[in-house]
């Protein structure tokens, strides 16, 4: 063990106990999955849909809890809560799809409507739950902002496994995903259905969202899907590199956030993870070799030097 004087480094060095180590590694894998999946979402210009999807999980969490309590349980089973979350997220996704394709409502308005209404519904259900004496409702609000502290070993394994699976699937199907993201019409002529590919992407985003619900929380998971790709874009003009860098940034943020949370259990894990991702974005914005501000200024200065030299 490290000296007691420096307890906060224990978690970062995976020395804070077996459970904390599992949670830290699990949330790192989640971060990798979010960065990788989020990149394809970003390239397809669908980032915002993930926000509606995430908020639409909340009614499902509440209803799944109520159902479990009604059946005599304590309502704490993470897998069952996630099943509820997944079903209501799918319902929300369907609403966005129908509103944006069958009505004249533009996509952003449809996203806004579904996001706020399902969040409102979810909050009402959670409030009702808090007035009940049945079940152990404490901890449900952890789904809002995420809390890695006090997570069960099985929860951590579920999150790590879910994250790794989602990331692997996205990387496996990168070619059709990229083809559709760049040029959907051409993809269709090559036999790659844009509708089916988009559906697959949405299912993977849903998987990442559900996986991240406990750690990052439904309000902030969208940030973990958006910030790493945007930061990674500043580093490269090649999609493959952008995907890898985004996975790295997401993974580092997930790791750091969970470790910080193990050190200071009162910190909302999701918020710390998102702030770490944002720090990576700021660094990328400054020094990213392709589009970072400092390299850009240097290139301009060099060009000006050329002008002076010849003129």
């Amino acid at each position: 063990m490290a000296p007691a004087a420096l307890p906060m480094f224990d978690a970062f060095l995976l020395q804070a106990g077996y459970n904390a180590t599992l949670v830290t590694l699990g949330s790192m894998l989640l971060g990798v999955a979010a960065g990788v999946t989020g990149t394809f979402l970003y390239l397809r210009k669908r980032s915002l849909i993930s926000d509606a999807l995430a908020h639409a999980t909340l009614p499902g969490v509440g209803l799944a809890f109520l159902l479990m309590v009604a059946l005599g349980g304590d309502g704490r089973s993470l897998p069952l809560l996630l099943v509820g979350a997944g079903l209501s997220a799918l319902a929300g996704l369907l609403c966005v799809h129908l509103l944006s394709t069958r009505t004249r409502l533009p996509l952003d308005a449809a996203v806004g409507a579904v996001l706020s209404v399902s969040y409102g519904l979810g909050i009402v259900i959670l409030t009702v739950i808090q007035t009940l004496s049945a079940g152990r409702q404490a901890g449900l609000e952890g789904f809002l902002l995420g809390s890695a502290a006090g997570m069960l070993r099985s929860d951590a394994l579920l999150i790590g496994f879910g994250g790794a699976t989602a990331a692997l699937l996205v990387i496996l199907f990168r070619r059709p995903l990229l083809l559709v993201a760049f040029d959907a019409g051409y993809a269709a002529t090559r036999g790659v259905s844009p509708a089916r590919t988009d559906l697959m992407l949405m299912v993977l985003v849903l998987a990442v969202t559900l996986t991240g619900l406990k750690v990052v929380g439904l309000i902030l998971i969208v940030a973990l899907l958006i910030i790493p790709p945007v930061a990674a874009r500043l580093w490269s003009d090649r999609a493959g590199v952008v995907v890898a860098v985004a996975g790295g940034i997401g993974g580092a943020a997930g790791y750091g956030g969970a470790a910080a949370s193990a050190t200071a259990p009162d910190l909302p894990t999701g918020a710390v993870i998102v702030l770490l991702a944002f720090a990576a974005f700021v660094i990328s914005l400054l020094v990213g070799p392709v589009r970072g501000l400092i390299p850009q200024a240097l290139r301009r200065a060099r060009m000006r030097g050329h002008l002076d030299g010849t003129g």
Partner: peptide, 8 residues
């Protein structure tokens, strides 16, 4: 029809 800012 395509986004030329795409990382490619």
């Amino acid at each position: 029809g395509v986004d030329w800012d795409f990382p490619a």
